[in-house]
Simulated assay, not measured.
Amino acid sequence: MPTKRLPQQANIDHLKYQARDLLSAHAARDPQAAQRIREFLPKFSKLPDPAIFDTPLKLTDAQLMIAREYGFQSWARLRQHLEKPADRTLPLEFGQAVALIDAGDTEGLRVLLKKHPSLTQQHVTFEGTNYFRNPTLLEFTAENPIRNGTLPANIVEVAEILIAAGAPLPAIHETLGLVCSGRVPRECGVQVPMIELLCDAGADPNMGMLPGLTHGEFEAVRALLRLGAALTLPVAAAIGYTANAGRLLEKSSEEDRRLALAFAAQFGRLHIIRLLLDAGVDPSGYNPVGAHSHSTPLHQAALAGHFDVVRLLVERGARLDLKDTVFQGTPLGWAQHAGNKEIEEYLLTRA
């Protein structure tokens, strides 16, 4: 789920009110509140809505959730940021290394790493952001989030130097997800070579699959499958492998079925959606964590312009009144935002 940006004039009292509003929404058994709690409080992450509502929620829980919703690790860190915003200037040698990465200066990078061998293990902290909150140098080779809009032609060699110099395995895994979900590596023609390098260095190809699917990076998805990632129900649903989806459906978990519906709706896989709905998957549930979980399948289909999918979901009982948890828009609002007039007119007739 995307994190929210702090308001321009954010203050701690206003955020305390948000925490109390969350407690009220939890008490009222609001499904949007359940989704937000599930996303940002790990102890609730595997619980269905009824279990979340039946579990007491303390004010400290609500405050922690609000902090994480704005991209901070804790309420105390959020309060500290409001009192004194963090300096995002990179440490000197780390910043020099990032500049060398961006320039594709392999010789300069080797010299710097030889002089400061611990640099590949160092993390920098960027709180208050959607992701990329604690990167090492290796993550900067993915250009995700976008900083420059391009990558040097020799970025694979740059990444190889960082890995050989001691980039930790968690950073290799994290970089795989960033590469698989980033358009810049694909546009620069280095996405698949980077994936191959990272997997050869120990990254599990399965760990890049969810980011790749969520962002529709199918070149990355096919590379991951070739490198040994599992063909699961969500993967088959996203790619449109109807026969595989039918075969995998029977033994799949409820979570995988919900994830498959999220991807099938996002990418317009009508026949697979019908299979999933016939199997009893709820058309109204919020998408699972990691798959645009601030929205429902109907939101995603309305945004992408899949009219037949929208109609099928509505006919099977998808709720039109659920709002996404970030922008507070209904599926109708998403269709209007995307300029999908046919879907907008249809949803207006069903309101």
Rank of each mutant, 00 (worst) to 15 (best):
L162C: 07
L162N: 01
P168E: 09
P168V: 11
L169D: 10
P170A: 06
H173L: 10
G177T: 02
G177F: 00
G177C: 08
C180W: 06
V184I: 09
V184Y: 12
Q191K: 13
Q191S: 13
V192A: 14
P193M: 08
P193T: 04
P193R: 14
M194A: 08
E196K: 07
L197P: 08
L198C: 04
L198E: 04
C199H: 07
D200Y: 08
D200A: 13
D200T: 02
D200V: 00
G202F: 02
G202T: 04
A203T: 03
D204P: 15
D204S: 15
P205S: 02
M207W: 11
M209G: 09
P211R: 09
G212Q: 03
G212N: 05
L213M: 12
T214V: 00
T214I: 12
H215C: 10
H215Y: 09
E217I: 03
E217G: 01
F218G: 00
E219T: 11
V221G: 08
V221T: 05
R222G: 03
L224F: 10
L224S: 05
L225G: 02
R226Q: 12
G228E: 09
A230C: 12
A230W: 10
T232N: 15
T232G: 02
L233H: 01
A236T: 06
A236H: 00
